[in-house]
Structure formats: structure tokens, C-alpha cells
Design a protein around this nucleic acid. Sequence first.
DNA 1: CCGTATTATTTAACATGTTAAATAGAGTAG
DNA 2: CTACTCTATTTAACATGTTAAATAATACGG
Lengths: 178, 178
Amino acid sequence: MTRAAQTAKRAEASAREPMRAFSRSLPMLLLRAREAVMNRFRPNLRDHGFTDQQWRVMRGLVDNGEMQLSALAEDCCLLMPSLSRIIQNLEERGLVSRRAGDNDQRSWVISVTQEGRALFESAAPISEARYAEITRLIGDERLEQTYELLEDLIRVLEAPDADDAAAPKPQKSAWKTP
Amino acid sequence: MTRAAQTAKRAEASAREPMRAFSRSLPMLLLRAREAVMNRFRPNLRDHGFTDQQWRVMRGLVDNGEMQLSALAEDCCLLMPSLSRIIQNLEERGLVSRRAGDNDQRSWVISVTQEGRALFESAAPISEARYAEITRLIGDERLEQTYELLEDLIRVLEAPDADDAAAPKPQKSAWKTP
DNA sequence: CCGTATTATTTAACATGTTAAATAGAGTAG
DNA sequence: CTACTCTATTTAACATGTTAAATAATACGG
């Protein structure tokens, strides 16, 4: 049976079955896949003194230059309370610095220091090599398919349903019932 | 340009570029995809008093019946220290119980209590409905493709490389250099 | 200009992730 | 049987995830 035929057969079967087996459910597969990927990067990150999240922050800042905290949180997929602590940590280690926002005294703008950039650059080549290794193991074409499916998945699920099933955020100026 | 052609073009390009943009890298896409999926389930889980991980444990136990702690950890993708605390919590709430292993007094065997099963079953239908909703939004065929790609990804990355790049675990009876 | 609502960030409290060390039972060579 | 080694689980310590509340600055209607 071809792969396409297998896919079609399962798609047909999915209408009948109550829920996919736990270990093979979409949430578990995404969790295991991410763990499998991160396990390829972690030894290098740890060797350079970074947690996963600290590395995401450094990477975001190096890629984008100085950023406001809330934008950095969005970019790194971190909640503000987590990012707040992470920045404090990185700041104490002299890897990032902050300045007040230009037009808004509530906001902070974060950037990497020279030391931060140097440490990042000492770790980055091995991370790139790991990424190339992963690409080689999966194959370019299959990896591209994976990118596209995941981006579609994110786009579809982050958009609110027509019937508001996912508890949509209230709009900025919510009208009140008269 | 067809989707396949786009895929091929990007695959060709990937050999040149140093690393995919941070926000669209495989680790970030997997993280965002999982968050997007879990956000569909969380409101229901919280309504019933479960964290993500507590729900995984309950689901694993209901699916598989009583399980040894270490097997449960593997099944739920949890580290033993985390699972140890989670079981203590669920035990205090009367949702699971433990007994000593049959042949090994070090091990514990965990099972859901009647109350645990009842609470699980009160939350499960809405979770199933959410899964069906996600399936509808993505489409059966694309979801099946996603399952296959993720399972491949996990299988390939969890297998140790030929050159042991991912720090393979030492075998049970490691021979010593003579 | 004032009072109020809104927004950016931080803090608090508890659950989990992560790594190392501690505990205790099981297995094994001698 | 004893000493040594492994193995299953727990504890400890610190970082992050998550939710609610606190702070402080901004925006806005009147």
C-alpha cells in the first residue's frame, strides 16, 4: 500500500474513532518531537551556560537588535513573568542591558552586551552544525513539508473559530450591552 | 508555482543558508504548534482542576490501567522528579493510589481511584470534542500527514547517529577497555 | 485638568523542568 | 554470606510555566 493510500485510509477511519491513542495524539507527538529536537541542541547550550529559554532570548536579541520586553516575549514564545526573571538573570550576568523606552516610560528596551554577543557567538556555530545534522537526518524535502504543515497548523489554530470556540480575546474597545 | 515546487525550491535553498530564521526554526515551530494545540484543551482541563501534566498522567493511567512509575514517566514524557511530585499531588487529592511492586519493593504501581476516574470522565468528552474540532480545522488528510512526519521525526532523532553525535546512553553491561 | 480605564512590567505563589545527590532495595562476584 | 554495584524512586535547589494581583505610566472622556 502506498503512503498516500495509508494516509487516506487513516483519514477515513478517524471519523469513527473517539480519540487517537494517547501516546500518538497530536499533543504528545508535538511534545516528543520537540524534546527529540531540543536534545540535539541542549548539550551545547548547557556547555555555554544557557538554558533553552535563555538561548531563545539571546537568539531573538541578536537576530532583531534591541527589542521591547513585550515584543521579545512574543518572539520567544515566553510569558512576561518568565521573561522578566530571565532578563534579570541575564542582566546580572552582564549578557544583556536595558534602557527606558523612548516614548513610554513604562517599557524597557533590551539589547545584548558585547560579552553577551561574544558568548552567543561562541555557542552559535555548534548549534548551526546541529541544525544541519538534523536536516541531514530528516532530509530537506521532508523537513520542508514539516515546516509547511506546522506553519499551517499554527495559523489555523491561532485564528479564532467562526463560532468562537477558543475563547477569543475581547476587543480593545469592547462595547457594553446597553 | 505549485506547493511541491515551492517545497523543492526551499529545499534547494536550505543548503546555502546558515540557519533558518529564528521564529521559523524547527524548535520554535514545534513549540508554537504545541502551544496552539494545547490552548484548545487548557480551558477545559483547568475547569476540571488539572494542569497539562496532571491530565497526561490521568490519561495514561486510564488508557493503560495500573502502571509502574518509571513506565508512566516514559509514557507521559515526564522526568521522574516531576512525576514524583505530580503523583504526590494527585494522591493527596484522592485521584490516584499506589501499591508496592510485586517483585520489586523499590517500585510503586499507580492506578486511578474511582473518584479519579469519575473526574477524568467528566472532563474527557469536552477534550474529545476539542480534538474533533482541531481535526476539522486542519483537515483529516493534512492531520494524517502531520502525524506521519512527526512520528518519522521522532524515530529518526531518537535513534543514535552512526557517529554518536547525540551522546548515546551507555549500554546496560558496558564492556570495559581491557 | 481630573478621574478613570488601559497598558507595560513586576511580584507572588504554586506547579513543573532540570540536574545532582540521597535513599533504599535488588543483583552479583567472590 | 558479604561487599560492591546497579536500579527505582525521592529530595534538594534553582529555572521556568502559569495565574492572579500589584505597580506605575499612559490614554481618554468629560
